[in-house]
């Protein structure tokens, strides 16, 4: 499927005329698909859709029902007006989760997904900050949101951001982008993602991102199958694993920042 899309993208770039927009629906993506057995393990394959020149495709990874319409139509608005965008990729997983209560989010805007990244939980004021946690994907984000009260109770003060689309985020004004992820945040960041650590949801992230992020390929093995709960647990994207992973990230902040500073000082 990638090959014809690549050829299409090249044709779109060179065409003197406006062409249509190819949509790729990765409808059963994420580790959840391993419930159909490991041959269906959809964590690396959806990332193939990033292998196009930057700005020529818009990747959308939805975790909540109410992200889909604003995220997609934001992408469609761009594609309908910018000829170079020839492909929109929509990635969704299978589980039916309860629709999120956005009144509890830092960004309560129902159309927040149109901005690409939005803040689920901001830093609690007046307390030490422990870093930025960026979530992408269905079970990963849902389970992270589930453990937020527990993290707060444990005194962990992280900023939690939902990453729907880096391309949509790139289209936002600088002021919004900096309000969500200021430049320094990229060095103080981990991912909780149903994708893989071979390709992060955002570019230019810090050198220790890999050391703390949570992804299905955490042990660089193909996982097995089973019920969805089994698969998510094996992927270390269940609630308990996420809690432990974020807690470690938070508690080791001084050490990881020192490590990065030392690396720069050594240059």
């Amino acid at each position: 499927m990638y090959l014809p899309a690549r050829v299409w993208s090249q044709q779109n770039q060179d065409s003197k005329f406006r062409t249509g927009v190819l949509h790729i629906l990765a409808g059963h993506s994420g580790p959840e698909t391993a419930a159909d057995a490991r041959t269906h393990f959809g964590i690396f394959a959806p990332q193939v859709w990033k292998l196009f020149p930057r700005g020529q495709v818009i990747n959308l990874s939805f975790w909540d029902y109410n992200d889909v319409a604003p995220g997609y139509f934001a992408a469609a608005e761009i594609a309908a007006r910018e000829k170079k965008v020839g492909i929109i990729i929509i990635e969704v997983a299978r589980p039916d989760f309860p629709v999120a209560d956005r009144s509890k989010f830092a960004d309560t805007d129902l159309r927040a997904a149109s901005k690409g990244l939005y803040v689920i939980r901001d830093f609690a004021p007046g307390k030490p900050r422990h870093g930025y946690v960026v979530a992408q994907g269905s079970s990963s984000t849902f389970n992270l949101v589930k453990v937020l009260p527990r993290l707060e109770q444990a005194g962990i003060n992280v900023k939690v951001i939902s990453a729907i689309s880096e391309e949509l985020f790139d289209h936002q004004p600088e002021a919004y982008r900096n309000s969500v992820l200021p430049p320094e945040a990229y060095q103080d960041l981990m991912f909780v993602s149903s994708g893989t650590r071979r390709m992060w949801p955002l570019r230019n992230v810090g050198s220790l991102t890999d050391a703390y992020s949570l992804t299905s390929d955490w042990d660089h093995q193909w996982l097995t199958g089973g019920l969805e709960a089994d698969v998510i647990a094996e992927a270390h994207l269940d609630a308990d694993s996420i809690f432990a992973g974020v807690q470690r990230f938070a508690q080791e902040r001084p050490r990881r920042l020192e490590q990065q500073r030392a690396a720069l000082d050594a240059l």
Partner: peptide, 23 residues
């Protein structure tokens, strides 16, 4: 239904049909 109420059980994939219907 491009949007649903908080708490209703419906995964993101179910929103895909709605966006295409609207489109």
């Amino acid at each position: 239904a491009l949007f649903r109420k908080a708490g209703e059980v419906a995964g993101a994939r179910r929103g895909v049909s709605e966006i295409v219907k609207w489109l």
